[in-house]
Structures are given as structure tokens and as C-alpha cells.
Design a protein around this nucleic acid. Structure first.
Lengths: 232, 232
DNA sequence: AACAAACAAGAGCACTGCTCTTGTTTGTTG
DNA sequence: CAACAAACAAGAGCAGTGCTCTTGTTTGTT
């Protein structure tokens, strides 16, 4: 991220910051965000708990840093999955890859997913540091929709989009160049909501008595959404 | 729920249990589940903190009771919204009413929504007490899909549903009589995921920089889903 | 060499969930 | 009515938490 530290003290600081973050991430993955303890991290690292506060001003700040890392990790996973699809014109395959990457990442990092897309526990208002990395996964999907539109595809609906809705979605339309059509914006945000909706419902146990095979069902869903998006 | 209590002690117990629950709900609504404190509740009620433990064995048990109440409250709101639609054959209107009830309830009870459909904080595994009330809102939607199918409507897709997916969704198909068609089951669960997905993403701030007018966009989404479900 | 900034450690505060003990109230039984 | 056990309330106390303040040390710069 930043420049390479010059002084020995700066490198030591960077290393300790990293060590605290790694230990916190390990603790988060094991026992979840609610039970994450600054004192336990300090114990693990063999330092006084008060020393940790020189690196992170509060427990929430530490959690926020973990949230940022989680967003980045997920974004990277989705981007990598997209990039791994050789035929860039295989739009359906790219949606499949990204959707699967999302679900797989969520299952492998349930506490991180809960922290980012479940209830954001620190203070209930997302800190401003998190807004940029949070958009990373959404942008990956947005680029796919943009590519689809440029390839001449058309979503299955809506047929007409009212002016109020166009205005409401103007930011998401303007994020790509050329701008996304209103219909694609609506369908795109809908699919985005549905994908994260499924993962949340599955991960948090709401499909327990309704769906027997989550993986199969998710694959079906993704294919359905690919149809809705007019892919291939 | 249970029989009316006979003895004075039983009524006192029921009343105190209710008072604790009400105070906990108020505290939950104000400061959220993470900051909910047994001691604070006891202070508010003018009793010793140890006395609360005679009514709820642990803080998690109290939270679980609040979760159950939240599920019931939301389920009731959705059922009431559905029931308020006079023309029962107005399937699109019923979907609109229920979806709006869901979103409105979530906005008015953000902490309750986060507790139920965000990350379930107590123990990360939903207690068995919660599974029945949790299904209430889903069942309301399921009945709508069932009514649509009986009225001869057809969802916009999928055209074919593989055997594995039929098996995966067999519980949700069998919940209503006559059983839901595979296509309606897939579309239904998809819409269910999408609705809760939107509410979660909106409530937890993920649409902050993409969508300007949540209400308008949600209405557009619901109408789109009504089309996908073949309603009217 | 002098000095200020950065650092680590420990004690301590106010708070938490929860348990154990003591003493009281209540409802039931002989 | 008396006796007794169950249910109850209150307090003290334990182990843990986030965080702050003070003290003493190390580091980098002037």
C-alpha cells in the first residue's frame, strides 16, 4: 500500500501491526467477531494489552480493519474467478464463476461474511474507510453487465423503466462506460441482491428446512439469473 | 400461548418475564444486540441482576427469546399486509403488500432485522426454538405462489428443472397443497432470496453509493419479480 | 550529547456475564 | 393449623472485558 518504511522503528511498527491483524483475523475466523478480544490478541502475541492500543485506537478500529480486509479478500476472489474464464465473451460462464466464487468464499469465511454482509457490528454505521473496498465485488458484476450490454444482449425485463427509477439508479448506470441501460441496471441490481440474498439466507440457516442441496439450488439460481440477464 | 396461570406466584412470574422481555426489547431497539446488558435490564427494573437469571438462564437465552418475538412480529406484519388486500385474486397487489411490509418492518426495526436476518449473534447456530417462527414470513409468500399456480399463472422461467434441483427443492414444493411446480418453486425461492437480499443490502448500507432512492427501486424490483412470477 | 517522540508494561477503573450463598416468601401437604 | 419444600430475591464475588493513566525505556533526530 504505502511506501516501504525507512527506519527500523517503522518496519517494526509495520510488522507488529501486521501481526496484530493476522492474529485478530485468526481469532475472528475461529470464534467470531463478538468474542474477539484485544486482551487475547495481546496474550497471543506476548505483549501487554495496553500496547495494542498504540496500533489500533480501539477494538472497533481493529474490527474495521478486518472488515476492510474481508471486503478486499472477497473482491479479489471474485475478480480472480472472472479473470480465470478464458473466453471473455462467455458471459454466462463468467457469471457462474463469479457467483460461485462469492458463495465459496462466504462458506469458507463465514465470520468474515457475517461481518461484512451480515449485520455490521461496530457502531451500526459503516465507517467511511470501508466504502471503497466494499464496492469491489459489486463492480466486478457491473463490468459483466456492461460487457453483456456492449455485446448486444438484452435483459428479459423490465420493458419500461420509469423516470424516477432511472434517477434512483443513475449512479450505478454511470459507473461504467458506456453507461448501463436502465433495464440492465434494474436487472443487474436485482441479480446482485438475489445472489447476496441467497448466500446470506443459506449461511445464516434460513434455508435449513426448505432446501436440501444448497449447491445445486444455487447453480440453478445462477443459471436462471443468466437467462434473466439475457446472457448467451 | 400457554394456559392462564393459577397461582399468584405464577402470574407474578409471567408478569416479570414479560417485563424483562419488554425492557430487553426496548434496549435492543435502542442500542442493539451487542450492547444489550442483563445488568442494565435489572437496573431498569429495580432488581438484582442475579434475579434475572431465574427467568432466563443466560443472556443468549434472552436474546433467543427476542429473536423469536422478532420473527413472529415480522411474520404477523407480512400476514396482515397480505390479508389487507381485499381482492384475493390480485396476486400482484398481494406481493406488493407483503414485500412492502417486509421492507417497512425492517426499516422500523433495524436491530431486530439484523438479529434475525443479519448475522445471528448468539452462538452462530440458530437455536431450535427459532426455526418455527422463522418460517412464518416465508410461508406467507409460499401461499401466494401456491395461489398463483392454482390460478393458472406461470413463472417466466426456468423452462426445465433438473432432477437434482427438484429433489433439492422437494420440501418447499411439498409445503403447500397442491404441491408447487418445480418452476414455481425455483422462481419463488429466487424471489424470496432477492427480496431479503435487497432489504439486507439496503439496511446494512451496501447500496449507499449506487442507489439514490431505495423506496422507488424496491417498488421497481417487486414489480419486476411479479412479472417473473407471472402475476397478472 | 541532548532532547523529544515513540514505545512497552503495569496498575487500575468501570463494566460485563454468571455463580454461589444467605435469607425470605409462597404454595402444598400432613 | 403447622411443617416443609420449592421458588424467589439480594448480595458478594469471580473471571473476564475495553480502555486509560502513569512510569520507565528505547529510538531517531537535532
Amino acid at each position: 500500500m504505502a511506501d516501504a518504511p525507512r527506519t527500523a522503528r517503522a518496519t517494526a511498527r509495520a510488522e507488529l501491526t501486521r501481526a496484530i491483524l493476522d492474529n485478530a483475523a485468526a481469532q475472528l475466523a475461529e470464534i467470531g467477531p463478538a468474542a474477539l478480544s484485544v486482551r487475547a490478541i495481546a496474550r497471543d502475541l506476548g505483549m501487554a494489552s495496553s500496547a495494542v492500543y498504540r496500533y489500533f485506537p480501539s477494538r472497533d478500529a481493529l474490527l474495521t480493519a478486518l472488515i476492510v480486509e474481508a471486503y478486499d479478500d472477497l473482491g479479489e476472489a471474485i475478480e480472480a474467478a472472472d479473470a480465470a474464464v478464458r473466453r471473455r465473451s462467455d458471459l454466462r460462464g463468467r457469471l457462474r464463476a463469479m457467483a460461485q466464487a462469492l458463495r465459496t468464499w462466504a462458506i469458507e469465511h463465514p465470520h468474515q461474511y457475517a461481518l461484512t454482509y451480515g449485520s455490521p457490528v461496530p457502531g451500526y454505521a459503516a465507517p467511511t474507510d470501508t466504502v471503497v473496498p466494499a464496492t469491489r465485488s459489486a463492480f466486478a458484476l457491473l463490468r459483466l453487465f456492461s460487457d453483456a450490454q456492449r455485446a448486444g444482449r438484452r435483459p428479459l425485463g423490465p420493458e419500461r423503466v420509469f423516470a424516477a427509477e432511472k434517477a434512483a439508479l443513475s449512479p450505478v448506470m454511470a459507473y461504467v462506460d458506456p453507461p448501463l441501460s436502465p433495464a440492465y441496471a434494474v436487472r443487474g441490481v436485482a441479480v446482485w441482491s438475489a445472489l447476496f440474498g441467497h448466500v446470506s439466507l443459506e449461511l445464516f440457516g434460513h434455508m435449513h428446512n426448505g432446501v436440501l442441496d444448497y449447491e445445486t439450488h444455487f447453480a440453478t439460481l445462477v443459471d436462471l439469473y443468466a437467462n434473466d440477464l439475457g446472457l448467451t
